[in-house]
């Protein structure tokens, strides 16, 4: 008979919930301008919040899955291994978002001919560059200024970290990295929890955000509470299902 404590392990549920909250928090850091940014009408990357956050976070999940398999396949998974796996997920996510923002920047600068600029602050908090004079008429800024770029990498870090934590916790319930069914189930659950939190955060953002310097960033506490509740529900459902695979 399976021990119920094993199936509904509170520490696992707490860590999965924490992973979900990190994802929700990370989404707020990612500079997305939505459809207006695709027309260089708003600062940030020209796509939706969920789309970019999910793209980055799930790239991190691929990295974390690869690293977890390398480290846990021998049956011993230490705390150092845990840190290495979640850090690898965070770095994978950061690489994806940094490359995307950088290439997007090249298109804004060389394809559209606009300088990167924020419309939410008069001076870039990191470089000190004047911003308002570089905003073209009828727009809310364009491109990815340094402050948004740095914010985006932090968002990638948090998103990748959260997604990887969820994946590792789910994998650790069964502890059999060679079982493809378990890997697939953990991977798809982590993806699902990622989307739940990214969508919730995107409702809070309401379309566009430039990064941590944007006034909308002050709405973060509301997102944390909602993501906490949503992730907790997801964890309560996911953990017994994974436990049932044993």
């Amino acid at each position: 008979m399976i021990d119920p404590i094993t199936i509904i392990d509170p520490i696992t549920i707490i860590l999965i919930t924490l992973g979900g909250v990190l994802i929700g928090l990370g989404v707020h850091f990612i500079p997305v301008g939505g459809a207006p940014a695709a027309m260089a009408q708003a600062t940030g990357v020209g796509t939706g919040t969920v789309q970019l956050a999910a793209g980055a976070g799930l790239t991190g999940l691929i990295s974390a899955g690869f690293m977890y398999n390398n480290l846990a396949i021998d049956g011993i998974f230490t705390s150092v291994d845990y840190i290495t796996v979640v850090a690898s997920g965070a770095i994978g996510s950061m690489i994806m978002i940094s490359v995307t923002m950088f290439v997007g920047q090249l298109i804004y600068v060389y394809g559209v001919g606009v300088p990167p600029v924020s419309a939410k602050v008069k001076k870039d908090p990191i470089t000190g560059d004047v911003q308002d004079l570089y905003v073209s008429r009828g727009t809310e800024g364009h491109g990815v200024p340094t402050v948004s770029f740095v914010s985006g990498t932090i968002g990638g870090l948090l998103g990748g970290l959260g997604g990887s934590m969820i994946y590792v916790q789910l994998m650790e319930i069964v502890g059999d990295p060679s079982n493809m069914a378990v890997v697939a189930l953990a991977g798809i659950f982590a993806t699902g929890v990622f989307y739940v939190n990214a969508v919730l955060a995107s409702y809070n953002i309401g379309g566009t955000i430039e990064g941590f310097h944007d006034p909308k960033f002050k709405r973060v506490p509301k997102a944390i509470i909602s993501c906490l509740i949503a992730s907790l529900i997801c964890a309560i459902i996911a953990v017994p299902i994974m436990g049932g695979v044993v």
Partner: peptide
């Protein structure tokens, strides 16, 4: 599936700006 999502996110974030803004 995951790489498809990443490819779509990158395509929608980079190349589409050239189509939309230019």
């Amino acid at each position: 599936f995951l790489w498809g999502i990443a490819a779509g996110a990158i395509g929608s974030s980079t190349g589409d700006v050239h189509y939309g803004a230019e």
